[in-house]
């Protein structure tokens, strides 16, 4: 029975991937990407990987789609078809694919108990995570404590991505872009914003989204969740507010400057906890010296480190949205000046 679910999900994944390749309308492409992410999240859930499923649903289907749509307000709706002869590219792709399929024959069997991945460090984690840290969600223990330097690197990757977007989009737009908007886009936006139903429902839903974000942030030790998912969910609540009430109102709640500071503070909190371990006589990102009781020390360290990740992820996601949303207004201002 479970095989049937897996097979159905995988077939749908392949179908959606084909559709993404063929579709030329970028809005439809963004939506198909969201469906693809939801399907993979379902597949992860079917494999009992709750944390990964939650991440895929929150990041892939949630925030990534929102950011795609924000970018598409700046771009043409349709993909420009590629010209010319692509036989060389086809040859390279076919050769690479053939090599990969050949190499896949040497991979160990899927899910076999003597796979390297099952006999390397995983047995140690599975046997000792709970006695070492008293954290029921093993994924949180591995992510934030055993492998906390990897996670620090991931937090820095997110911060770097945020900085890259800021650096790229801080350059003021210069030339006129080709027309990409419908005739009444401005008034259309206003009329959507004045829609009472959306405002009321948003007012009801946004606090719930933020509460849920806090729940998966601080419940991540016990159930699937953690800093990455929580940060994204929290940012999604803020972005929903910006979509319904306007970017200006949203920037009044969390100003851009605060977003910068938070993005850096999250990573700094992470590093600070790591250095605290050194100062108290342990190693970098060693949580045991933090408190007397080893379990309490580990849990404190994990919660604080995850909180740092959550703050950085949320602030960076908000920064992405702020910059993409404001870019459109800057371009329109340039166009208005050129029209005068």
């Amino acid at each position: 029975m479970e095989y049937l679910v897996d097979i159905a999900l995988l077939l749908l994944l392949v179908t959606v991937a084909m559709a993404i390749l063929r579709v030329r309308d970028l809005y439809a492409g963004a939506m198909l990407f969201a469906i693809y992410s939801l399907l993979s999240a379902g597949l992860f859930a079917a494999l009992d990987a709750g944390d990964v499923a939650l991440t895929e649903a929150a990041v892939g289907a949630g925030i990534a789609t929102l950011l795609f749509l924000a970018v598409l307000t700046l771009a043409n709706r349709r993909e420009r078809p590629a010209r010319g002869n692509n036989r060389l590219a086809l040859g390279v792709v076919v050769a690479t694919g053939a090599c990969l399929i050949y190499a896949a024959g040497d991979l160990p069997d899927f899910g076999a108990p003597d796979n390297p991945v099952q006999v390397h460090v995983a047995p140690y984690y599975i046997e000792n995570a709970y006695t070492d840290m008293g954290v029921p969600n093993m994924v949180a223990a591995v992510l934030a404590s055993y492998r906390s330097i990897d996670t620090l690197g991931e937090a820095f990757v997110i911060l770097t991505a945020g900085l890259a977007v800021v650096a790229l989009l801080s350059v003021p737009p210069r030339r006129r872009r080709r027309a990409f908007s419908g005739p009444c886009r401005r008034t259309g936006e206003r009329r959507m914003r004045e829609n009472g139903i959306l405002r009321v429902i948003a007012r009801f839903v946004i606090p719930m989204i933020m509460l849920f974000g806090l729940y998966i942030q601080f419940h991540g030790e016990y159930s699937p969740g953690g800093g990455f998912q929580a940060g994204v969910v929290f940012a999604a609540g803020w972005i929903l507010f910006a979509l319904v009430y306007g970017l200006d109102a949203a920037l009044k709640v969390i100003p851009e400057r605060v977003q910068y500071v938070l993005a850096c503070l999250g990573v700094l909190l992470y590093c600070f906890i790591g250095l605290l371990g050194v100062l108290l006589g342990g190693r970098f990102l060693d949580f045991y010296p933090l408190l007397e009781s080893p379990h309490a020390a580990q849990q404190t360290g994990i919660v604080l480190v995850e909180f740092g990740v959550g703050v950085t992820v949320a602030a960076c996601a908000m920064l992405f949205f702020t910059f993409f949303a404001r870019r459109k207004r800057e371009i329109e201002a340039v166009e208005a000046r050129e029209d005068d």
């Binding site: 419908g182 009444c184 259309g188 009329r191 959507m192 829609n195 139903i197 959306l198 429902i201 009801f204 839903v205």
Partner: peptide, 17 residues
């Protein structure tokens, strides 16, 4: 709450457009 709101928002957006 959210599903009918999404449907409504879609219909409204289409009408505005």
């Amino acid at each position: 709450f959210t599903a009918p709101t999404a449907t409504h928002a879609l219909a409204h957006a289409a009408m505005v457009d």
